[in-house]
Design a protein around this nucleic acid. Structure first.
Length: 480
RNA sequence: GGCCCCAUCGUCUAGCGGCCUAGGACGUAGCCCUCUCACGGCUAAAACGGGAGUUCGAUUCUCCCUGGGGUCACCA
């Protein structure tokens, strides 16, 4: 039988990385087995509806290459794929469940429920529905229904015994039934809760493997009870532990470290993000780390998913992003870096020159402007910058060096890397000095910074002849 | 608090009773390369949470403790 997995996000307006990872695993599992990956939108909570959120989901999936085989935007044999459009389906199945004795009508209003909960909390009991409407007579129900009293349909959990299910990563899990709550299946607005909708939809859509976060682990027994009541085949479960910021902390939307979009605007490559989150909680079993989507599809195995929560390590993401950046061609790099160049440099420069300096020195594109902050304007720097122990330079001998450098550069018409390079090396050789004695002062005079992407020669090329000479003269002035 | 689950370097992990003197990667430190920084190369420090068992032998199996995570909504 063909495997079918699904990604079933709520349209919340942003793509949490933990969520994206779940989508990735669902995609990988399906594709590894040659199966289908389905997208379903879980929008049964109208209060949480966010405009444009669904488009963001499409965009993210398309951008990362997690292409779905069925979904609201492309259709399929099991639609509709948006839960709010499946309203009538749920009602029918909820009523079927009532007939089967696995669910019941409940007419309790919010006030009563709050009161019950309050009392339970006071008594330090776990808060559960007290079963007030569990055994209403047929007459009572008919009467209230006819009178138009708002109602919900609740699951009727057995009061004794226990329920066991098998998870592909966690193994056998058993929960005592009396710790399970009679949750609402169908809300008073006629829409289902997640608890119900996911079971009905997964069955109707023929989903064979359910990949989701471990927050559903403790409610899965209830879902199994539902499958059993319907007489439906129970799917395979794959629960994934959460992604944490650090021990005891969650990734936060506010701090900009929780969503895929957050990382994209900071200049992380989509493939790098995908690669990193794949490894956050999954291992291919060997030492491979840099893997393309296709390679991950090949290597994917549920057995490699880890059970404990994983802490999001920005350092490792940075490294992986750097690896991907280094594998970019110079042209590709320039294309992605262009918006950052435009932001950082107003002066007319050869962007390919910038790229050749930056491509090995960039971990994420957002770092670029800071690296280039000396291009437009020479920063005000201290003469002490000319002192470098290893280069054996001081402000004094740097002045001498700059005074020697200036006329030589003035005489260069062919302002290119090799020409400048040869002239500077020749100068050092003829003076019987180490290259650094010439090049360190040059770089400082041109940049005014202790660290720069590239050396003095590269910077001279980028700045051009006129600006370079000007900065060297200013250096001489500063040191005189 | 009840219930469920988890536990290897700081972090992500390999390990599925002897191949473990516990492997890899990030990060950290040092060295090399070198006009700074970075890239690249090399080296180093760094872990089986604690206690009982089972076994000829436990990182690997069982139990307890501790620590961590999840869940207890007409949210998903």
């Amino acid at each position: 039988m063909k495997i079918r997995t699904r990604f079933a996000p709520s349209p919340t307006g942003y793509m949490h990385v933990g969520n994206l990872r779940t989508a990735l695993y669902a995609y990988l599992l399906a594709k590894h087995e040659g199966g289908d990956f389905i997208l379903r939108i879980e929008d049964t909570d109208q209060e949480r509806y966010v405009d444009g959120a669904v488009d963001l989901i499409y965009k993210t999936l398309a951008e990362t290459g997690l292409v779905h085989d069925e979904g609201p935007d492309i259709g399929g044999d099991y639609g509709p794929y948006i839960q709010s459009e499946r309203r009538d389906i749920y009602k029918k199945y909820a009523e079927e469940l009532v007939e089967k004795g696995a669910a019941y009508y409940c007419f309790c209003d919010k006030e009563r429920l709050d009161r019950v909960r309050e009392q339970q909390e006071k008594a330090k009991l776990p808060s559960k529905y007290d079963g007030h409407c569990r055994n209403l007579s047929k007459e009572e129900i008919e009467e209230k229904l006819a009178a138009g009293v708002p109602y919900v349909i609740r699951q009727k959990i057995p009061r004794s015994g226990s329920t066991t299910f098998e998870d592909m990563v966690f193994g056998k899990i058993t929960a005592p039934n009396d710790t399970l709550d009679d949750n609402v299946l169908l809300k008073s607005d006629g829409l289902p809760t997640y608890n119900f909708a996911n079971v009905v939809d997964d069955h109707l859509m023929n989903i064979t493997h359910i990949i989701r976060g471990s927050e559903y682990l403790s409610s899965t027994p209830k879902y199994n009870l539902l499958y059993e009541a319907f007489g439906w085949e129970i799917p395979k479960y794959v629960h994934c532990s959460p992604v944490m910021k650090e021990a005891g902390k969650k990734l936060s939307k506010r701090e900009g470290d929780a969503s895929y979009e957050d990382f994209r605007v900071k200049g992380y490559l989509k493939d790098a993000i995908l690669n990193y989150i794949a490894l956050l909680g999954w291992s291919p079993g060997d030492d491979r780390e840099i893997m393309s989507l296709d390679e991950m599809v090949q290597a994917f195995n549920v057995a490699g998913i880890s059970k404990s929560p994983a802490i999001f390590d920005i350092d490792k993401l940075n490294w992986i992003n750097g690896e991907y950046i280094r594998r970019l061609s110079l042209d590709e790099f320039t294309e992605i870096a262009m918006p950052f160049y435009k932001e950082a440099v107003k002066r007319d420069v050869d962007y390919s020159l910038l790229s050749s300096c930056l491509h090995n020195r960039t971990e994420k594109f957002a770092d670029i402007p800071e690296q280039l902050d000396f291009i437009d304007e020479l920063p005000d720097y201290s003469p002490e910058l000319y002192t470098h122990k290893k280069m054996k330079t001081t402000p004094e001998n740097s002045l001498e060096a700059l005074e020697k450098i200036l006329p030589i550069l003035e005489g260069i018409d062919n302002w290119e890397h090799d020409t400048i390079h040869d002239a500077m090396i020749d100068l050092a050789t003829s003076l019987e000095l180490k290259n650094g004695r010439i090049l360190w002062p040059l770089r400082v005079a041109l940049s005014g910074k202790a660290f720069t992407p590239g050396g003095g020669i590269e910077i001279a090329c980028i700045l051009g002849k006129a600006e370079s000479l000007d900065r060297i003269r200013r250096g001489i002035e500063k040191l005189s």
